[in-house]
Simulated assay, not measured.
Amino acid sequence: MPTLQLQVTNNSVQDRLLLRVSTQDSEEYRIYFTRRYLRELWPHLTAMLAGHLANTAAPVTSVDTSEPGEQMSFEQPFREDNVNYPLGKEPLLASEAFLRENGEGAALLTMAEGRERSFKLKLTAGILQVLCSMLRAASEKADWNLALDYHTAVSQSTHPGKSLLH
Rank of each mutant, 00 (worst) to 15 (best):
A142R: 00
P91I: 03
L99Y: 04
N55P: 01
V8P: 00
E90A: 13
E70K: 11
V83D: 09
A94V: 00
P86C: 05
Y29S: 11
Y85K: 07
E27Q: 11
L4G: 10
L164E: 09
H159A: 13
A58N: 12
M72Q: 14
L164Q: 02
L99A: 05
Y32A: 03
T65C: 13
A138S: 01
N102R: 04
T3K: 02
E104T: 07
D81F: 08
R115S: 12
M72C: 11
L6D: 03
Y37F: 08
Q129P: 02
P59Q: 13
T152L: 05
S12V: 10
L131H: 04
W144I: 00
P77I: 12
L121T: 01
T124I: 11
Q5Y: 06
S95C: 05
D15R: 03
N102G: 09
L148W: 06
S163L: 08
T61I: 13
T9D: 05
R36G: 03
D149S: 14
L6P: 02
G126W: 08
M111D: 04
S163I: 03
E75F: 14
N102E: 14
A153F: 04
V8K: 00
N102F: 15
P86S: 13
F78R: 14
T61G: 12
E80D: 15
S155E: 03
H151P: 00
L6V: 09
E140T: 04
L38D: 00
T9H: 01
L41Y: 01
L131C: 03
D81L: 07
G114S: 11
L108R: 12
D25G: 08
L131K: 01
T46S: 13
S95F: 00
S66T: 15
P43T: 06
N82F: 10
G88A: 10
K141H: 04
S26N: 13
E27M: 08
E96P: 00
F98K: 06
G103F: 04
A50V: 04
L135K: 02
E28A: 10
E28S: 10
L146F: 03
A147Y: 05
T158D: 12
L131W: 06
L6A: 06
L93C: 06
R115K: 12
L135P: 00
N145E: 03
Q24S: 11
K162M: 12
E101P: 01
P77V: 12
A97F: 03
M1Y: 12
T9I: 14
L45R: 05
V13L: 13
A107W: 01
A138P: 00
L148A: 10
D143I: 00
T124V: 07
L4S: 13
N10L: 10
R136I: 01
V83Q: 13
K162A: 14
R20A: 15
